[in-house]
């Protein structure tokens, strides 16, 4: 039970990172982006490439940072992967979503994102192969936190949690303390009014994609560290991330953070009562429960 709770918190840390970008895009561009989870895969795989590149160029970087299974090479690869994923998100918007948007087909955006998800996921499969991959083939030994009851925790998991919390703190400071943060919230509130007040809408949308993509890439790497890299990981992540945004209330960054942890903990706690085969259904049950008792989520507001 306590083990499940701990695992849930760790699952929650990467779900939250993924959900933040999704909730921002859904709030500002007003469409459910089914391809957001593919940005996690993209980030995870580009980190794999940069990791190999770094280790190849500077072999000393490939050494493990005991007790983590993490290497310096991978840590350096993460910022590169954030940039690549952020720019990819921007490009996808420029090439596809913006064109559909400009044709005035707001609802079609959802479907365009379905198509995009299929394309990205399968191109990754073609390039990297369909079999699972790992950042490090060494087994990371778990630390025993307590013997009674037996609770195990991997050092990597602690790193993931701490890093995720630091990133969220930085985002919080940016959103609450900078002009850019105000502009972003103004656009989310009322795009036309924000524009009248001199907020550059296209540029704000650009930053939303960059931030969303960058956070998604970190989430993808963390997912890869906790599990494994597989081209269809986006398919398995899309529903939990959506559930996190709905639980938190679409548009609320803090809601997305909390929602991510709630979904992660619920999915792991469900293992206590349900056979593990049913885990993929848990996010859906959570969505249904939230829609029944609090349709706009924990922090969301009603908006047409």
């Amino acid at each position: 039970m306590i083990q499940n709770l701990i695992d849930g918190v760790l699952t929650g840390s990467y779900l939250s990172l993924g959900a933040i970008g999704l909730t921002l895009v859904m709030h500002i561009l007003r469409f459910a982006n089914f391809s957001h989870a593919e940005l996690l895969s993209l980030g995870a795989y580009s980190a794999l490439v940069f990791d190999a590149l770094m280790s190849g160029l500077v072999p000393t970087l490939a050494e493990k940072l005991a007790p983590l299974s993490l290497t310096w090479a991978l840590i350096i690869a993460i910022p590169f992967s954030m940039i690549v994923t952020g720019i990819s998100a921007l490009l996808i918007d420029k090439l596809i979503f913006r064109r559909v948007r400009e044709k005035g087909q707001e609802l079609s955006m959802v479907f365009a994102s379905f198509g995009m998800a299929l394309i990205v996921r399968n191109i990754i499969g073609l390039i990297f192969g369909l079999s699972p991959q790992l950042y490090s083939k060494d087994i990371a030994f778990a630390m025993v936190l307590s013997l009674d009851p037996l609770i195990l925790i991997k050092p990597d998991q602690v790193f993931v949690l701490v890093a995720a919390l630091i990133l969220m703190l930085i985002l919080h400071l940016v959103l609450s303390r900078t002009t850019f943060g105000y502009a972003l919230r103004a656009v989310a509130e009322n795009p036309s009014l924000a524009q009248v007040n001199g907020v550059n809408l296209p540029r704000t949308i650009m930053y939303v994609w960059l931030i969303g993509g960058a956070l998604a890439s970190v989430a993808g790497v963390f997912y890869g560290l906790s599990h494994q890299l597989i081209p269809v990981m986006g398919r398995d992540l899309v529903l939990p991330i959506f559930a996190a945004t709905i639980v938190g209330g679409i548009g609320s960054v803090y809601g997305a953070v909390l929602g991510g942890f709630i979904v992660g903990i619920a999915a792991n706690l469900a293992l206590v009562v349900l056979p593990s085969g049913y885990t993929p259904s848990v996010p859906f049950l959570l969505i249904i429960i939230v829609l029944m008792i609090r349709p706009h989520g924990l922090f969301g507001e009603a908006r047409a």
């Binding site: 529903l239 959506f242 859906f284 706009h296």
Partner: peptide
């Protein structure tokens, strides 16, 4: 609710 909810919930039904 706004239209994204239906999209997400129906997607969720299919997964479940």
């Amino acid at each position: 609710l706004r239209h994204d909810y239906l999209a997400i919930a129906t997607f969720g039904v299919a997964v479940a």
